[in-house]
């Protein structure tokens, strides 16, 4: 008989992750399980975005996409993937994140109660502003930037900018009315938030200032209730295979966004090696703080973990 899995969806129609990856994946799940598992997309998100982990854990819905960064302190170890200067290319980092998580991080049990089908990143946060190209640390001085998350807030402060913590839904108003000078944002989202004309200066930081991890997760009991062969079939099309498709979709979105900005005559610059070196020095405390937190959560050598992550990213990037 058929098992119905209720999917709490918060991605709008037309959004890349939903259209290009999740919906085809839902169809494939039905196919590879010979129709025994069917995923039912609920018309509206169950609960709200920050609550999605609990939604799956308590079975308000079975399947969710949750953002670990929305509940600070809970998924500290996972934040390794969100550190500065890891990767600015989701095509590389998304599938690698899933493999790295399973190899090094899963054993800490941060997702107890929710089975992670795929752990991945979307586009990295890059710098967009309406004042000037950012060519040195001095150029950051006093610029008011919207900050999407705590590590970005810390980074902006260290760079001398003024971080303003506001919800993403207010980005357009903040930028269009000129309350802020800029925002840290995934490049891919710039057209969706209609910011093309509002941020004439884009600065690409190689390795990125931060990444955002997302998890496709399913209620653990629901997962265990599926037949072993169905679990296996679903696992095969999830994990890093799923993540790779997300990464490709977002990398495409990033490229399109930058192309759009360039075509409109806006400035899109990549930070010079000198500036990156300087930024690495200035942003060192972000990494140091994470190492402290990870130690407290029982990671013996967090520095080694980060080194390994960067080495794997470097190796994978060479292939691209």
């Amino acid at each position: 008989q058929t098992t119905v899995i209720k999917y709490s969806n918060w991605l709008p129609v037309g959004q890349a992750m939903r259209m290009e990856v999740i919906e085809p994946w839902i169809a494939e799940v039905e196919k590879v399980t010979a129709g025994r598992v069917k995923i039912d997309t609920l018309p509206k998100v169950v609960g709200t975005l920050p609550a999605q982990f609990d939604v799956a854990r308590d079975g308000q819905a079975d399947l969710v996409v949750f953002i670990p960064g929305y509940t600070p302190n809970r998924f500290d170890i996972l934040e390794a993937l969100q550190m500065p200067f890891v990767s600015d290319n989701p095509e590389v980092l998304a599938p690698l994140a899933d493999r790295f998580f399973r190899k090094h991080l899963a054993s800490y049990g941060e997702f107890k109660g929710v089975h992670p089908l795929s752990v991945y990143v979307v586009s990295p946060g890059q710098l967009f502003n309406n004042k000037r190209p950012l060519r040195s640390i001095a150029d950051f001085k006093g610029l008011k930037f919207r900050s999407p998350q705590p590590s970005a807030t810390q980074a902006l402060t260290l760079l001398g900018a003024v971080p303003v913590n506001k919800p993403v839904s207010e980005t357009y108003e903040l930028m269009s009315s000129g309350v802020l000078d800029g925002t840290l944002m995934p490049p891919e989202s710039i057209p969706a938030f209609k910011l093309n004309d509002l941020v004439p200066y884009a600065t690409i930081v190689p390795g990125a200032i931060y990444n955002t991890v997302l998890v496709l997760g399913i209620n653990e009991d629901k997962w265990k209730s599926l037949r072993a062969e169905d679990r296996e079939a679903i696992t095969r099309i999830s994990g890093d295979a799923f993540a790779a498709k997300i990464g490709a979709a977002y990398a495409k979105g990033d490229r399109a966004a930058f192309d759009g900005l360039r075509k409109a005559g806006k400035s899109v610059e990549t930070a010079s090696p000198a500036l990156v070196d300087e930024m690495k020095k200035v942003l060192a405390p972000v990494e140091k703080d994470w190492i402290e937190k990870a130690k407290k959560k029982g990671v013996a050598d967090p520095q080694k973990l980060l080194d390994e992550l960067r080495a794997e990213v470097a190796a994978a990037s060479r292939g691209k």
């Binding site: 600070p72 302190n73 809970r74 705590p150 807030t153």
Partner: peptide, 17 residues
């Protein structure tokens, strides 16, 4: 019930904790 769980996770606000 959520308070007990949150205490277990150590959930806290982002800036002030």
């Amino acid at each position: 019930r959520q308070a007990i769980r949150s205490a277990g996770y150590g959930d806290a606000s982002a800036i002030l904790g």
